[in-house]
Amino acid sequence: MRTAVGTAAGVGALVLASFLLAPSAGASARVSDPAPNSSASPTPSPSPSPSATTSDVRIRTFAYGTHVRQRMDVWWHETGPRRPAVFVIHGGWWSGGDKKYMTSVSRSFSQLGYTVVNLDYRLSGDAAWPAQRADTLDVIATVRRHAEQFNTDPDRYVLLGFSAGGHLATAAGAYGDGLPGLRGVVGISPVVSPLTAYADGQGDGASLEQRKLRKAAIVLAGGCSPRQCPAVWSSMEVPYHATAGDAPVMTVHSADEFVPPYQSGTLKQALAEVGVPMTVKTMPGTQHSAPLYREPGVADAVQKWVADRLGH
C-alpha cells in the first residue's frame, strides 16, 4: 500500500512569471559556447529536434516556492517545435549540494536540443522527508503548467538524478500510479533503498561513506530510525511503491562503490513484478555519482537511453 503524501501546499497556485528572478551568475540569457570541461559532450546520438544548436537557448532562474532553496534553472529553446524535457536533480547526501554543480550536465542536454530544468530542493536540514519529493513533484507540475512559455512538451520528459538526487528521481517516478507525461527515470548511483543504506552503514565492516550515508538517511527521516518511524522509512523506500503505471528506469553504479548495484537490484525486482522494465548498468571501480557519470561511455549510454524514451 502506498503512503499518500501530497506535494507542497500551493502546487497549483504559483504563477511562475511572478517569481521571475535575475539570471544567476554564470548563466546568461543566451548560450552559444560549450563548457570547456563538460561532463557529457554532445554526440551525434538521436536528438528530440531537427536542429540541436544552442544559439536560441535562454536560461532563467525561477522560484517555484517561497523557500530560498525552491529554485530552478530552466534552459529552453525559443525556436522550433516543442522540445521534450530533462529534469536534473543534484546529489549531496540530502543535506548539501547545489544545482550549480549540474551546469555541465544541463548544458550537454540543452545542446542535444532538450528543454532542461536544473533544480534545487529543500535539504534535510531545512525539512524532513517527504519535503524533498514534494519539491521535485512541484517543479515538474510547475513546468508542465507553463509548458508553452518554455516551448516544451508537457507529456514528454525524463528525470535524471545523481546519488541522493537519484533517490528523489526514482521516488518521484514511483509516486502514485505514475506521473503524467513521464517517459523515463535515470539514476546515477541512486540511493533507491535508504533501508539498505541504513543496514550497510552499521557495524565495524562499514566504510566511512556507508556510515555517513546511514546518518544522512536518519536525518532525512527527521532524526528517527526505521524502528522508531516505520511509516516514514516505508515512504522513503522506492521499491515499496512500484506500480504498473511507473515509467521505465535506468540506473548506473560502480561495482564497488558505497551505493552498490544491489540497491538498484531491489527496485528492478519490484518493477519486474508489475511489468515495468529497468536497466541496471554496472561499471568497474568505485566512482560515485558525477565522477561515475564522467567515466567513458556512461554519459553516452544515458543520452541514448533518454533519446530512446523521448524520441519522435
Rank of each mutant, 00 (worst) to 15 (best):
D33Y: 13
F162C: 08
P194M: 09
C229D: 13
P154E: 13
L179I: 08
Y262H: 10
G311K: 04
S41C: 07
A17S: 15
A27F: 11
T243M: 04
R211W: 04
T279S: 15
F109E: 14
P42H: 03
A221C: 01
V68N: 05
Q303S: 10
A301R: 02
T286D: 13
F87T: 14
F87E: 05
H90T: 12
P50C: 11
S235E: 10
G245K: 14
L267A: 04
W305T: 10
F19R: 15
M72C: 07
L119N: 02
S55R: 06
A13C: 05
P226I: 08
H146Y: 11
G265W: 05
E295P: 03
G173M: 04
V86Y: 10
Y293M: 10
L123N: 05
K100R: 13
W305D: 10
D33G: 02
A9W: 01
P284T: 07
C229Q: 08
F109Q: 11
T115K: 06
R145H: 15
T196M: 08
V191T: 14
A147G: 14
L292N: 05
G92V: 12
L112G: 15
P248R: 00
S124F: 06
Q132L: 03
G181R: 11
G265F: 02
S189G: 15
R211F: 09
H241C: 01
L123K: 15
D135G: 07
M102F: 00
E273S: 15
S235V: 01
H67S: 13
T282I: 14
V249T: 06
T286R: 13
R69D: 05
A206V: 08
P130K: 07
A131D: 05
V88Y: 05
L292Q: 07
S49I: 09
